[in-house]
Simulated scan of single mutants.
Amino acid sequence: MSTITQSALQSSYPPLLPKEFNGNQPKTIRLFPLSNYTFGTKDGQPEEDPSVMARLKRLEEHYNEYGMRRTCEGILVCHEHNHPHVLMLQIANAFFKLPGDYLQPEDEEIDGFKNRLNERLAPVGSQFTGEGVNDEWQIADCLAQWWRPNFETFMYPFIPPHVTRPKECKKLYFIQLPKSKVLSVPKNMKLLAVPLFELYDNTQRYGPQLSAIPHLLSRYNFEYIDEKGEIVAVTPGGGPMSGNVPQTKVLAGGDEEMNGDGITS
């Protein structure tokens, strides 16, 4: 932390507050601390396709039978040291992805999305009991739509003008995490808490979709809640801040330490 920043935090002089600057702002989002959540593991969920080519082949078969594939993924946010962290999965120490998946052809959008979230993150059997186990997913705003114009790996945040029949639409939804919740990750995956500054402008590691998440969340103001349920910081401005630097944490699954770089699939 720079000397200037330290001096600003330690100053006894209150900041100069500008006029109100929240016109047409979405509602302020409450973020709860990472320590409020319980993480575990469950049986592994192998990838359906052994290769990228196999995945694209299955996409083509799906399109020919059912039309455009619908995919929903969730942006789950909590905080650590008063900085937003996004929960995401890492597969084989290589590929990063958000919780969620493609919908079955007969699924309604939101109900089908909740089913896919449960497949990935809900605890099974009597693994856990108590508060937060059976809480319903709170699906909030759709923050982005990514389009796959052809049977290729590339997706775009727009439909190219020459494309009239995209092959897949992937929606990213903001998911409001409750005060506490129990999450279980398949054993062959890791559940990570990645700080926003790690994602920002980091397409080499996370790819264009995940590295765009800080942009998508910038529309919100946040209130940071501590374990006692009290507001300890708000954005913009003010509130306590420790000297700890937020970093990616492995919450459950896989090895204890992160190894190697990865990209999204």
Rank of each mutant, 00 (worst) to 15 (best):
E131Q: 12
E136F: 12
A144H: 00
N36D: 13
T71D: 08
A144F: 02
H83M: 13
E80Q: 14
N36P: 07
R69W: 13
P105W: 03
E136K: 07
D101A: 11
P84Y: 04
G74V: 00
V86D: 08
H85A: 10
N150S: 11
F32R: 03
V77N: 09
E119P: 04
V52W: 00
V52D: 05
N64L: 13
L56R: 03
T41I: 13
P105I: 13
P157T: 00
Q45T: 04
E106D: 14
P33F: 02
P105D: 05
T41R: 01
M155S: 15
E61C: 06
L121W: 09
C78Q: 09
N150K: 14
R69Q: 13
E106Q: 13
E80Y: 00
F151H: 06
D101W: 15
R30G: 06
W147G: 01
Q145I: 02
E65W: 00
H62D: 07
V86P: 07
Y156V: 14
G132C: 08
G100W: 09
G132A: 08
L103E: 12
P46T: 02
F95A: 12
R30S: 13
E61M: 07
E73I: 01
A92M: 10
H79A: 06
R120T: 03
I91Q: 13
F128S: 05
F151R: 07
Y156Q: 13
P33K: 03
A54L: 11
V133W: 10
R120W: 15
L103G: 08
Q45C: 08
N134Y: 10
N64I: 14
A144E: 01
R55T: 08
K57V: 15
H81M: 08
Y37Q: 05
K57F: 04
L56M: 09
G74F: 02
I139T: 02
T153R: 04
M68G: 05
V77S: 07
M53Y: 06
F39H: 09
E119H: 11
S35F: 03
E73A: 08
V124Q: 01
G74N: 05
E47L: 13
M88F: 00
R120M: 14
F113R: 04
Y37W: 02
H62S: 06
H85I: 13
H79T: 02
A122M: 09
Q90F: 04
Q90H: 06
Y156I: 11
D49P: 02
L56H: 03
C142M: 14
E73P: 04
E60A: 11
W137V: 00
E60K: 14
Y102D: 03
F39E: 10
T71G: 07
F113G: 11
D107W: 12
L59K: 08
E152D: 09
A140C: 09
D43Q: 10
G132S: 05
C78G: 07
H79Q: 09
D107F: 13
M68E: 06
Q45K: 06
L117W: 02
Q138G: 01
F154Q: 15
G130T: 14
G130Y: 11
N64P: 06
N115E: 15
D49T: 09
A92K: 11
K57I: 15
E60L: 05
